[in-house]
């Protein structure tokens, strides 16, 4: 089965491990991702103004590409792309006047877009559709007593209109890993914001968030953290080094894309990972848990 695929910018650069492992999972379940042609950046954050439509053009162009591909399910891996594409589609679906205005802007586009023709689907949703039963049947390497903390952040869960799972108690990753002999630890900050784009000019906010989130996961005995958003990954992973320098009591925690962990469990060659992209080396714990 083919599915249209929108990578977005970050998966081609800093989040290569996510793209490689994420896409490697799909053939196991007879799904072939087909990257859509001429895709553009989604804009990363959805514009929240209702009077400026320019920001909606980029995500809608991408949705038009997906519609033209003839395969109306559009897979995303990045949470921010997921959020932006979903909300842009909803925005024009519910507002005919704005839909017309946007159409007039895009005179070079030949394909019309109403808002509901393409279904944007996140990799986590797709895997949940496959089901933990089928996924666990493909288990190759059982981890040894592995405790993980899942982290969802914001963009997959909020606002409600586009949420991939419950905003307060999401289970998308829990469902996948619980069937794999992995213990998912409970800690209170699975859905609390990492600080997002404030990393650019308000680093202190991200350090505060990371300290709170990572320390709580560590306190609840997590061996590592898994997540699905490249920005959360950067914020929660790359800043840990600074926290170690600031505070000798801070205990770091390796952070992986959930797909990296799942790929190891399903027996995909670990070499597709570029471990050097990690600031907190996850390989020792992965070795200890029998996954490397």
């Amino acid at each position: 089965m083919e599915i249209s695929y929108y990578p977005g910018c970050t998966l081609k650069t800093s989040a290569k491990n996510y793209e490689k492992t994420g896409l490697a999972l799909l053939p196991i379940f007879d799904i072939s991702p087909v990257e859509i042609k001429d895709w553009v950046c989604c804009g990363a954050t959805y514009s929240l103004t209702s009077d400026n439509l320019m920001y909606q053009l980029a995500p809608i162009r991408t949705l038009i590409r997906a519609k033209e591909s003839g395969n109306p399910r559009l897979l995303t891996l990045c949470d921010m792309c997921y959020n932006t594409l979903k909300r842009a589609a909803l925005f024009i679906e519910n507002d005919e006047e704005k839909r017309e205005k946007i159409k007039n802007f895009m005179d070079e586009e030949e394909t019309d877009y109403r808002g509901d023709e393409v279904e944007v689907v996140h990799l986590l949703t797709l895997l949940n559709e496959i089901g933990s039963q089928k996924i666990s049947e493909k288990l190759v390497k059982s981890p040894l007593d592995l405790k993980i903390a899942t982290y969802y952040g914001c963009m997959l869960l909020r606002p409600k209109e586009i949420q991939a799972d419950s905003a307060e108690n999401p289970q998308l990753m829990e469902n996948i890993f619980q069937g794999m002999g992995v213990e998912v630890v409970e800690y209170p900050f699975r859905t609390e914001c990492c600080g997002s784009y404030q990393i650019v000019n308000r680093r202190e906010i991200i350090l505060d968030r990371t300290k709170k989130i990572i320390s709580s996961a560590v306190k609840n005995n997590a061996d590592l953290m898994v997540l699905s958003c490249p920005l959360c990954d950067y914020n929660l992973e790359a800043t840990q080094k600074e926290l170690i320098e600031q505070d000798s009591n801070f205990k770091p925690l390796p952070v992986l894309y959930f797909s990296q962990l799942l790929a190891l469990i399903l027996g995909i060659d670990p070499e597709i990972n570029d471990w050097s992209l990690h600031n907190i080396d996850p390989t020792p714990v992965l070795k200890r848990k029998g996954l490397l």
């Binding site: 970050t10 990363a44 997002s196 784009y197 650019v200 920005l231």
Partner: peptide
Amino acid sequence: IESELREKLPQIALVGNFRKF
């Protein structure tokens, strides 16, 4: 923004930040 940081940051951080600010 320091160029060293700029290179390290994922694009979504920069694009998102500029979109808002």
